[in-house]
Simulated scan of single mutants.
Amino acid sequence: MREASTKALLERRGRSTDEIERHRLLEQAVELNADVARSIASRYRNRGVDLDDLEQAASLGLVGAAHRYRPELDVPFLGFAIPTIRGEVKRYFRDHAWMIRIPRRLQELQRLIATTAPQLKQELGRQPTSGEIANRLQVDVADVERASAAHGYFNLLSLDQPLDPAGDLRLLDLVPGNEDQTLLEFEQVSQLQPALDDLPSRERRILELRFVEGWSQAAIGADVGVSQMQISRILGRVLDDLRNRLLAA
């Protein structure tokens, strides 16, 4: 197991007095957990900061955690390292994302466009132009174009997004519990993101419209061209598939 192997490497490092060996053992422990750091970094992708930079920040957090970890305290390494890695990525994101953060009024306009464009598409039988959207919303065409160009910043199908209007259930809650909660939860969450990435574009769009944009099932059905009942079935099937994929992992 990753946890046992990591702990063994860092225990050997703690006993060694050879700096070359200590460095080698540290590198092996970091490499063993590199996918954990990458997975944490990936949760912030498509939000305006280059993924390579986020992964470097996550790697720095992992190296720092490995340096400070004390095996004799009998604390799971990932339980110790994950908050450190996440904190390093959040710090980098906070320090750099401000340079491309779009104004709040354009963020609000993005939401209006997301609702209005499908309605116009249904009325016109084609994709509406920026001018037609602007006319419906009674705003400047230039603002519609700027908001559309900025679409995608800070728009991530996050594991923390609620699965219901009350916010009582998140994608993360699909992860089953276990005695080793920190380790098992993270390993299965890291498997959930690729599962989301592997979804067909239509199903991923349905998930995003429902749980990120907050659209009703009827509105989603109108957008993708199926009935509300079909949307309900698709959502149920996709969520069941995600849950089963985690349980089978």
Rank of each mutant, 00 (worst) to 15 (best):
G214F: 02
Q188G: 03
E19A: 14
L239D: 01
P71N: 11
L196F: 06
W215E: 12
A114Q: 09
N135P: 06
L171H: 08
V30L: 05
Y44E: 04
S5I: 11
S227H: 06
D53H: 14
A57R: 06
L25Y: 02
H67Y: 09
N46W: 12
I113R: 02
L73S: 10
V189K: 09
T115G: 13
R70M: 09
L174R: 05
A37L: 02
S39C: 05
P76H: 06
G225K: 02
I82F: 13
R94I: 13
P103G: 01
E72W: 13
Y153C: 15
A41I: 03
V189N: 07
Y153Q: 15
L207Q: 00
W215N: 11
A150F: 04
R245C: 07
R101W: 11
R45F: 05
V49G: 10
I113H: 02
M99I: 15
L157C: 04
N244W: 08
S190V: 03
A248M: 10
R2C: 10
E185T: 13
P165K: 06
Q228D: 06
G14Y: 08
S216Y: 00
A29K: 03
N178R: 14
Q56A: 15
R45I: 06
H151P: 05
R47P: 10
V175E: 06
D35P: 00
L9N: 00
Q56P: 04
L171C: 10
E72H: 12
A195E: 03
L9T: 00
R24H: 14
A57K: 04
L209E: 06
E185P: 02
A134M: 03
I40A: 07
S16E: 04
L73Y: 08
E72A: 13
Q127S: 15
E203I: 00
Q191C: 03
G79S: 04
L235W: 01
H96G: 08
F93C: 09
A65Y: 06
N33P: 01
L159M: 14
D143H: 12
V141N: 04
S42N: 14
S5Y: 09
L120F: 00
E132V: 01
I100L: 15
A249D: 11
L32S: 12
R91K: 13
L78H: 07
N244G: 09
A4H: 07
W215K: 11
L246I: 12
V36F: 09
S16H: 03
P194W: 00
R38M: 09
V89Y: 07
E203Y: 02
I82H: 15
A4E: 10
I82S: 11
Q161E: 15
R101D: 15
R45E: 12
D143L: 15
S158W: 09
A134F: 03
A249R: 08
D241F: 00
L106N: 12
Y153E: 15
V49Y: 11
R13W: 01
D95I: 09
R91C: 08
N33Y: 02
E187D: 07
